[in-house]
């Protein structure tokens, strides 16, 4: 607690707050695709980190052709969504009824995709260029404008996803399939189509997250792994019953991680937060938003 008072001035608190918000929103960006695939299809997609990776490499590749950044983001989303569609059709479709095997198969996909990236681009790290770099001055501090852009994008993408899920006919169908697959099927919903679209959409979101994050990170074949464990813990802590769980999970994991990292070190933060997450998952297996089983 003593350490906190060292940062007792306004600017430092604001800076830590902004960093925390940035980490939380980044995590949310990664989680949202994950929780959609998990909640809707009951598939734990361990290849999510590699979809993120593919999005980031799309940026590296397309920036060589001097395309506008907005176009690159759209291409990254579409490309990774198509990859997801292909994988769903070839692999995942065959093992929906074998829950544990989906983890193993997606793990295998993640190994293969990562190795493919290493073969194509080499194991070294690449650099993606941020479209704008001037820092912004506000409230007496300066902050990276691109980070602010990432935060805004995370909020926008989450809002868009929720809009699609809760305010459109497609979202209604999808939620119907989550709630009761058999009943939805009986009422004439083509559940195969919903599965395909959902998996592609979730994958595309991961690719988009990777593309947006690429300029902030060193783009290398291992970059997906760093997000995988915190993202999964966020999803499990938040609960998979509703996509809202991702908000809670990312908030708790990301927030506590940033605060502990500011007070102690990032390593201690990770150890403390992961242990805390395991404890929460153990005590509330349905997550914070999950309904209690009676």
């Amino acid at each position: 607690m003593v350490a906190i008072f060292r940062y007792d001035n306004m600017e430092m608190t604001l800076l830590i707050g902004l960093d925390a918000a940035s980490y939380i929103l980044t995590l949310l960006l990664v989680c949202i695709g994950l929780v959609i695939i998990f909640g809707m299809m009951n598939v734990i997609n361990l290849a999510h980190g590699e979809f993120f990776l593919l999005g980031a490499y799309t940026v590296v590749l397309l920036q060589q052709y001097a395309l506008p950044f907005a176009v690159i983001l759209v291409v990254a989303f579409v490309f990774v969504a198509l990859v997801g569609l292909l994988i769903e059709e070839v692999v995942i479709r065959r093992i929906y009824h074998r829950f544990l095997d989906t983890i193993l198969a997606t793990w295998g996909i993640s190994l293969a995709l990562k190795q493919l990236v290493i073969i194509l681009f080499g194991p070294g790290s690449q650099q993606a260029v941020a479209p704008f770099v001037e820092p912004v001055a506000m409230f007496g501090i300066t902050y990276s404008s691109y980070r602010l852009f990432v935060m805004a994008m995370a909020i926008a993408i989450t809002a868009a996803t929720f809009f699609i899920l809760f305010r459109t006919r497609l979202g209604l169908t999808a939620r119907g399939v989550i709630a009761n697959r058999q009943m939805a099927s009986c009422l004439g919903v083509n559940t195969r189509r919903v599965d395909r679209v959902t998996f592609a959409f979730g994958s595309g979101l991961a690719g988009l997250a990777g593309a947006i994050m690429a300029p902030l990170m060193s783009v290398d074949p291992q970059m997906g792994v760093g997000f995988l464990v915190p993202a999964f813990l966020s999803v499990l802590v938040g609960g998979t019953a509703s996509p809202l769980g991702a908000l809670w999970g990312a908030g708790i994991i990301g927030g506590s991680n940033s605060v502990v990292a500011a007070v102690w070190t990032p390593v201690i933060a990770q150890i403390v937060v992961f242990s805390l997450a395991i404890l929460i998952i153990r005590l509330m297996p349905n997550g914070l938003t999950g309904r209690r089983r009676r």
Partner: peptide, 9 residues
């Protein structure tokens, strides 16, 4: 990796 996926599926 591909062999592993094949074995699992």
């Amino acid at each position: 990796g591909l062999l592993f996926i094949t074995a699992v599926v």
